[in-house]
């Protein structure tokens, strides 16, 4: 267990009764945000918003400042997000809801899929998995073990097969067996590799031959300890697959994952899930206020 101390109270004390946030406080705020991987641009944006608010509202007290900070930062987290998730839920459909999971190497795609499968299965959904990472050593075995843990079937054609064919086969099976949810695992790929990125577009087209409006969700998995490169990952994956949701993993460590604030703001992609461990139950629905608070928690 980490012991955490709240920054808000300290920041609050320094600011009470003042109509302007003094530079020292802003510097500290800047350091905290940068240290949480929020990035220079987004940090400056947040600071400008806070300054403007404080100037306008005057006489802020501790409680108000807490609120302003949380509100201003939370506002950047996909302001246009209409429905915040309350639970693991799927929109009602006649055909399977197809989720394509993408991301760079080692971020936690396969693990997140295993966790998602377990959650939706618990909700009474019929879940299937598609093993379209046919490249990384033992990738299919890994997904199959997660399928066993979650108690859901895995469609696979073995290693070395064309990932698009696996995706097609999995979609076909999900349709035949009237699954509610099909989650397709893909190989990790760095976004600067054009041929591998094109492969994702091909997987998408192939699924659409069977279900024209699929995939219904493209989930980009980001590693919570990744720094500013995550912004480029979001941009490049969005270009080829229209990423529609984000999961941030490994937030059980000391990394804060602050880079997603700018990503969510710039690309208007909602963050849906957070990974907080390696066990099957270690997946949570993203809550923006809790996330903002965690940025200010100090690791002892």
């Amino acid at each position: 267990e980490k012991t955490k101390q709240n920054f808000f109270s300290r920041l609050g004390r320094a600011i009470v009764g003042k109509s302007k946030v003094d530079d020292e406080v802003l510097d500290e705020l800047e350091n905290i945000l940068i240290a949480a991987d929020v990035g220079v641009d987004t940090t400056l944006k947040i600071i400008r918003r806070i300054e403007a608010r404080v100037q306008r509202d005057k006489y802020v007290n501790t409680a108000e400042l807490n609120r302003i900070l949380r509100e201003e930062i939370a506002a950047l987290l996909a302001e246009n997000q209409t429905e915040e998730l309350n639970d693991f839920e799927l929109p009602p459909r006649d055909t399977p809801y197809v989720m394509l999971v993408v991301g760079v190497n080692g971020v936690g795609k396969t693990t997140t899929i295993g966790k998602l499968a377990a959650q939706f299965k618990q909700k009474g959904k019929k879940v299937m998995l598609g093993a379209a990472d046919t490249f990384r050593a033992a990738a299919v075995d890994q997904l199959k073990m997660w399928g066993e843990r979650a108690g859901v079937p895995v469609v696979e054609l073995g290693m070395g097969k064309d990932p698009a064919s696996v995706a097609y086969e999995a979609t076909k099976r999900a349709l035949e067996e009237k699954a509610d949810l099909l989650i397709i695992d893909t190989a990790g790929r760095l976004h600067n590799k054009t041929n591998l990125m094109n492969e994702l577009a091909k997987i998408k087209r192939t699924i659409q031959k069977l279900i024209p409006d699929a995939p219904h969700e493209v989930l980009l998995v980001l590693d919570g300890s990744t720094g500013q490169n995550a912004v480029i990952q979001a941009r490049e994956f969005t270009k080829v697959t229209d990423v529609s949701a984000i999961a941030i993993t490994k937030l059980d460590g000391t990394a804060k994952g602050g880079v997603v604030i700018g990503i969510s703001d710039e690309f208007k992609i909602p963050i849906k899930y957070i990974g907080v461990g390696e066990k099957i139950e270690d997946l949570q629905i993203f809550n923006r206020y809790e996330f903002v608070d965690s940025l200010f928690e100090e690791n002892a």
């Binding site: 940068i34 949480a36 760079v104 990744t226 500013q228 460590g253 000391t254 690791n299």
Partner: peptide, 12 residues
């Protein structure tokens, strides 16, 4: 260590 690691690299 992953070259994409952010600010937490020093702590780890």
């Amino acid at each position: 260590v992953d070259a994409m690691t952010g600010q937490d690299a020093v702590n780890t």
